[in-house]
Design a protein around this nucleic acid. Structure first.
Length: 308
DNA sequence: AAGACGAAAGTGGTTGA
DNA sequence: TCAACAACTTTCGTCTT
């Protein structure tokens, strides 16, 4: 495995690089960009009770404590080790093991559900190239949701998506509901619903997302220069100061700021291009754009650069 | 022909009675 | 629980480059 040392994020130039040895993944804490990864998940499976099938292998199920705690009080042990020696025929012993095995399977249903859920979570988060910290936060949220029985009546996938969405926002690297929808295959309405539900029930408070958090990602998707990017952030700050941002969808504002910045720096992108990466319509960009131009007297800046 | 602009009608979510 | 409401979308026609 070839490994080069990366000191700086090529996307946002942040020095805040995070290396996860266990997962073999290096990512940028600021923008979430995964700089190198092995593409293969070597992380451990925790259940090993049917590993070798050996008679005497009285293995514990090997789950970490956080997992096992769920079946406390739920277990219906079928026989114990000492019962085994009371059986006289091989046939009965076989039966004993079968039943016992089945029982373990059933009683660990919740645990297994969690395992499946975490696998799904990993799939989605790697699709979105989210940093490990976010993944863990989402896993934590999902566990809490399961404990509180919030998954009932909802699909596991939608709760996963909601948890990830929440985790992203907490870490200030928000993804849009559209992106989350694409990655998870869940409709964005549904994700939004579960997200609200879960965060409310778990009393997780999440600040409204800052439009500026979207800028680096959108800008890089549009291949805009760093200057344009910082101009967009600057515009956003001015907009926020005169309360232009409150009540509006953050992605729309971010998109409009980026659009204006692209005009000012002569790196024009069409409204449609910007709209696509931001997941809003041109109309929304136009509306925000108009407001920005008017309220921030940006008109002349744009005009000036239009000429060349 | 493509992009920008704006009007009008529709959608889904929030809020307040 | 329902209706009013704001933000955003969809659709479509017109204007500009």
């Amino acid at each position: 495995m070839i490994r080069k040392t990366i000191k700086e994020c090529p996307e946002c130039a942040s020095k805040n690089i995070y290396r996860d040895v266990e997962k073999g993944e290096t990512s940028c804490r600021d923008c979430g960009l995964v700089l190198e990864d092995r593409m293969v998940d070597f992380s451990q499976e925790w259940r090993d009770f049917d590993d070798d099938g050996g008679e005497g292998a009285r293995r514990r199920t090997g789950a970490p404590t956080s997992e096992t705690q769920f079946d406390r009080g739920l277990g219906t042990e079928v026989g114990s080790a000492s019962d085994f020696y009371k059986l006289d025929s091989d046939k009965e012993r076989d039966k004993f093991f079968r039943l016992r095995k089945w029982n373990i399977r059933i009683s660990t249903a919740i645990e297994r559900n969690l395992k499946v859920a975490l696998a799904e979570l990993k799939r989605v988060s790697s699709y979105l190239r989210l940093p490990r910290s976010v993944e863990e936060e989402a896993a934590r949220i999902y566990r809490l949701a399961v404990q509180k029985g919030l998954v009932r009546g909802r699909s596991m996938e939608s709760v996963i998506a909601g948890a990830l969405y929440a985790a992203c926002r907490r870490h200030e690297i928000p993804r849009t509901l559209d992106e989350m929808g694409e990655a998870s295959g869940i409709e964005k309405k549904e994700i939004g619903r579960t997200y609200r539900f879960v965060t409310r029930e778990l009393e997780i408070t999440i600040r409204p997302s800052n439009p500026a958090d979207y800028i680096p990602r959108f800008a890089s998707a549009l291949k805009l220069s760093a200057e344009t990017q910082s101009k967009a952030v600057e515009i956003l700050e001015m907009a926020r100061d005169i309360e232009l941002t409150s009540g509006r969808g953050p992605t729309g504002i971010a998109a409009a700021a980026l659009y204006v910045a692209s005009l000012i720096h002569g790196e024009k992108r069409t409204q449609r291009e910007v709209a696509d990466v931001a997941g809003v319509t041109e109309v929304t960009i136009r509306n925000r754009y108009k407001e920005l131009i008017k309220k921030l007297k940006l008109g002349k800046d744009v005009e000036k650069n239009k000429k060349k």
